[in-house]
Each structure stands twice: as C-alpha cells, then as structure tokens.
Design a protein around this nucleic acid. Structure first.
Length: 574
RNA sequence: CGGGGCGUAGCGCAGUCUGGUAGCGCGCACGGUUCGGGACCGUGAAGUCGGAGGUUCAAAUCCUCUCGCCCCGACCA
C-alpha cells in the first residue's frame, strides 16, 4: 500500500486504485493463524482481528461479503421471501416465554438497561420473528409469510476459532416461514432447500446437503449444508452410491460384515489383557469379533452398554434413550457388577442392558466377568439379551443402511441449515391464526440460516494455491485487476485508462494496481488477493500492440491485441 | 470449562535456562542505483519487553498474582 499513485485523484477517471484503497498485504501471516482461509485473508488484507472472535472487514473483505449478500437477497427474493430488519438487542421476557432464557447458558450475551431491565443480544431471531407474527398475523388468509434479514448475531462462543469461521459476532441471513399446516411448511422448506442449492452453487462452492440434528432449535426435521474442507468442524457421512448424506451426529450405518465363527462357548485365559485392542492382539482376532461392554451411570442407575469391538459409542444417541449419563468409575464397576474393569462381558448381569444392533448377529468374544478371563462363542439371544438400538458412531468403511455401500467420511464447514420448527415457538408466544372454520391454530414455522462469512471462508478453503486465494468469479472483490508495470510510461498509462474505462462501462468491477512498485511485488500481491482475471500491461507488449490476460486459476496467459482487450476480458468475466 | 502453548518495534522472531540496562529479518521514512515474479546500497524513525506487585545494587530474564491471544478437547441457534 502506497500513498502515491501515478493518477491524480482529481483527474478522477480511475476510481479503484490500489494505491488508495486500504489493502494491507502481509508477506508473512501472523503466527496465531492456523486455518488456510484465516492465513490468506489476513495476508491478503481482507480482515483484521480486533479481539478473540471479533473481526474487522477491510475494504476487500467487505466487498466479498456484500457480493455474497447480494446473491443471498436475490435468491431469497426469488422464493418470495420479504426482507426486513430486527433489533439486535432484545428484552429478556420474550426469551423467558419460550424458555430459552434459561436453557441457553453463557453463550448468550446478557445485559441490563438503565432501568435494570434484563436484556440480551440476539443469537438468533426465532423469538422476535414469532413475536412479530403473533401481533400481525390473524387469519389463514395472511399465510404463508416468509421473512428474512441479514443481521448481526452475537454469541459468546466458548471457543472462537479459525479466523472468520467461528466468531462471536457475525452476520447471518436468517429467514422464517409461517404456515397454516405441516404440508404448507413442507413447501417452504423445499423452496428454501432449493434456493440454498442455487446460492451455494452460485458462490462457487462444493457442498452437500446432509441430515442433521435439530439441536436446541427443536423441531421435526433439519438439514445442514456442508462445504467439505479440512478446516471444517463437522464430520459428514456420505454414500457415493445412493447419495445418503448425514452429519455424524445423526448418521446411521451398518457395521461392516464379519464372518460367522464356529466357536464353542468357552472361557479363555487372557492374563492382564483388558482392552479390546489388547485382547484382539493377544488372540490375533480382529476387533469386529469382540463385544465392548461399558458401564454407564444414568440418574444414579447403572446401565450396561454393549458395542461391537470396532465401533465407538455415540454418546448423543445413547443420551436420547437414557438421558444424561457418565462412565462408571473402576470402583463402581467392581461394586455394581462384581467384575474388574476390563473383563466385563454381557452375560449374566441383572441391570438394564442396551446393545448396538450390529451385535444381533454373529458370534463374539467378550469379558468372562472374572479377572484374566474372556469368553468365546457369545451369541445374542443365546447367552444374553438386551434392548437393541443404534448406539454406534458411523465411521469410514461402515455400510450404508440403504444400499450396503461402504460409507465415506469428510470434514466440512457448516455454511447453512434449515429447520422445521413446527409450533415450538408459536405456541408459547401465542402466534396463532383462525383457519377457514374459525378455529384458532398455532402457526407452523420453519427457520433457515446462512452465514455469509462462512461462505467466504469456505470459498477460500476450497480455492487456493501456494500463491494465494483464487476467488470464484461470483464473489471476488473485483472482477478484474489491471497491472500496469511501468506506471511512469505514458503509453502504459493511456492503455490502462482505456481498458479500465471500457470494462467499467460494461459494469465490471476493476482494480488498478497503480503503485509505483516493481513488477514482482505487483504479481505477488495480485496472486495473493486472488482476483480472477489479471490484465498485465507492459512496455514490451505494448510495442507489439498487445496486453496479457491471465486467468488466476489456471495461470494461463493470453496475449491479446490492445484494441481487442476489452471485448476479450468481458468474455472471461462472470 | 479441562489440557497445552505463546505475549519483546507494524509483522515474523532471537535474547529468558545462567539477572548487568534490548537485537535480527521484513515493513516504514529519506537519498541514490535499479525495474517482467516479493531488488540493492546508505541514512534514519520506531519498543511502558502484556499488566501489577515482589526479590535484588541491578529484572525482558527470578518469584507471586493478573490480563490477553492461539491450539486440542468439552460445548455449540
């Protein structure tokens, strides 16, 4: 960034001059950046950190966010959603009415106004949107309604991370649908899902729509939109054959096949071998032929949980059945089961027993319920019985429940989500309407979110190389960067202005690197910043009457006659 | 909230173990030479060593407390 440029600002032809826009590029990334997108956005001068989880968007960063927001608005408007704007600060009473004032803990920023009234900063707007609906919607004739906003949300995250990916203050496009019944909700839900597909495609992202947990939103169904990336915080389970896609939090899977073993029911001596790993190694038999027996304590009551040796317990799935629980201590295992930890087996206990469905078939090895012994030849229904449930976490290589294909797991960034809320908010907040028979009914709602900053971060994660960012054309801060090499050369100046004007006239957004810097510096910065098309104007080329047009992604350069340059560049543009 | 790490010039770091009055590279300012992939020479500006207290003749360095930031985990509309 330099204060001096070759063009006099008062002469005023070229507006977007590198020398005058705040683009503080960095040769090295600050050491506390970890994620690729974080490092690149910092280095390329898109963002700066104010405090943990609080980011400043510099001019380039803000242009990207606004490009994304433009797409969001276009697609929301296209499904008939109406943009409005809600306050960021809310009175506590509304949140108390739905119960979330107490359900949500430290994650909600809370404060008092001068009259000592409890307030909070909005983490989301279900309450407020529903409050509005409760006052303004009376009749089935008023439905459906879809309202949306692109608004700041505040959440006191336990652990902000990865730059812009998980922050304490962020924008969200949140929309809310209001319908007379479930069928109508389904239509709005589908419309949003379709709009989301268009939005993420237009933003140039690779993404999946996956089944997801309803979490604290409650409600009947939910999907997340996931952009695969190493920087992602979620794992998603994918079937390449039938298209099954789910967040691991809710993913279902079948354990891989194991061969039927012709084992007699017998005890085997396994001195000091406790874990599945140890016993498996000792007996030279795969983990999948073992039963893992775990003792859990739920509400002071012990529960025995059985899993196949190669599977892991999915704690949320278990919690849905038995409520909150914890692992029993070694002392509790001894006093409750009379067995030393490491030698527990499924056979012969009187306590409540839950088993993963994968154990219904097959013959297994497990603890013999006495020290230093395991038992071989255990079969469900013969030696033990249990309540059968899906208790294991899906993992790579498990089989798809629909088509038996091995499943894949990918890390992904959650860029959007859609929830069928039902009447969870409309009932407590009394958002009701009269149907055509004059009966009062609660409005059936849906809620739908997208984080623009996460789209930007995911785009960088998915599109970069060793030199920097490669922005998808639709959300790049500029369409074209013109790089005049010698800014003191008259001919260069002339051609630069000519091309700039030609492109601007065609409604392209153009950045001109008018800095009096060495070519190397400009090339490096251009690659770092990642504007999709670079136009290099050099004295050498001008002598032959050409300029060079470079594609940031492919790195291919084309020599174009000066007089054809504008038309050619336009043909590359989005 | 549990575990780990780090705070020294705008950025990246050394110096801390073994106390002696702060240094390197990049960047920045000025002058000159350069000019198609982060040039070179010279000159210069810039640091309450995160903060408070303590030990000591003397603290970036040792001790106590505290604040901030990052990473792993837990948590996560």
């Amino acid at each position: 960034m330099k204060a001096e440029g070759i063009y006099n600002i008062n002469a005023g032809e070229i507006q977007m001059k590198f020398s005058q826009i705040l683009i503080p590029t960095l040769r090295e990334a600050p050491s506390d950046a970890e994620a690729i997108s974080h490092k690149l956005m910092l280095r390329a001068g898109f963002v700066r950190q104010l405090a943990s989880g609080l980011y400043i968007y510099l001019p380039l960063g803000w242009r990207v966010i606004n490009k994304i927001n433009r797409i969001l608005k276009e697609e929301m408007d296209a499904i008939g959603a109406q943009e409005l704007s809600m306050p960021v600060m809310h009175p506590a009473e509304i949140w108390q009415t739905t119960g979330r004032w107490n359900e949500i803990g430290a994650e909600m920023f809370r404060l008092k106004d001068r009259t000592d009234r409890d307030m909070c900063l909005g983490m989301t707007h279900e309450e407020i949107m529903t409050w509005l609906a409760s006052r303004e919607i009376r009749s089935y004739r008023d439905l459906p309604q879809v309202w949306y906003q692109i608004q700041t949300k505040l959440r006191d995250e336990a652990r902000p991370k990865s730059g812009i990916l998980r922050t304490r203050e962020f924008q969200m496009k949140d929309s809310y649908s209001f319908d007379a019944d479930e069928n109508a909700l389904d239509i709005n839900y589908k419309a949003h899902a379709d709009a989301y597909h268009r939005i993420f495609s237009r933003c140039g992202l690779k993404f999946y729509q996956v089944e997801s947990d309803t979490g604290m939103m409650g409600g009947a169904a939910a999907h997340e939109f996931m952009a695969p990336s190493q920087a992602g915080e979620d794992d998603i389970v994918l079937c390449d054959k039938c298209g099954y896609a789910a967040n691991v939090e809710v993913a279902k899977s079948k354990a891989s096949d194991n061969k039927l073993q012709e084992w007699e029911y017998e005890e085997i001596h396994t001195p000091q071998k406790r874990t599945v790993k140890e016993v498996s190694h000792f007996l030279k038999i795969g983990h999948e032929y073992f039963i893992k027996s775990l003792l859990m304590i739920a509400d002071t009551k012990p529960v025995l949980v059985l899993l196949r040796g190669d599977q892991e317990l999915h704690e949320k799935k278990l919690a849905k059945i038995i409520g909150n629980f914890r692992a029993a201590s070694k002392e509790e295992i001894l006093s409750i089961l009379g067995v030393e930890a490491g030698f527990i087996g499924p056979v012969g206990h009187k306590i409540r027993t839950l088993a993963d469905s994968s154990l219904m078939t097959g013959t297994y090895i497990s603890g013999a319920n006495k020290s230093d012994y395991h038992t071989r030849g255990i079969k469900a229904g013969v030696q033990f019985n249990a309540e059968w449930n899906d208790l294991h976490a899906a993992k790579e290589g498990d089989q798809c429940l629909n088509c038996n294909t091995p499943l894949r797991i990918e890390k992904a960034i959650e860029i959007g989500n859609i929830f069928k809320l039902g009447t969870k908010y409309s009932v407590p907040l009394k958002a009701v309407f009269l149907d055509n028979n004059g009966n009062e009914k609660p409005i059936v709602m849906g809620s739908y979110g997208i984080g623009p900053a996460r789209i930007a971060a995911a785009a960088v994660e998915q599109n970069n190389d060793k030199d920097g960012i490669i922005w998808p054309k639709s959300i790049a801060p500029f369409d074209v960067e013109i790089i005049p090499l010698n800014v003191t050369d008259e001919k260069t100046k002339e051609v630069t202005e000519m091309i700039y004007k030609g492109l601007v006239t065609e409604k392209l957004e153009v950045l001109v690197d008018d800095r009096n810097e060495r070519p190397g510096v400009k090339f490096k910065d251009a690659d770092l910043i990642g504007i999709p098309i670079q136009v290099v104007i050099g004295e050498k080329g001008l002598k032959e009457g050409i300029v060079e047009v470079k594609d940031r992604m492919t790195k291919q350069t084309e020599k174009i006659a000066v007089e054809n340059a504008v038309a050619k560049i336009i043909s590359f543009a989005p």
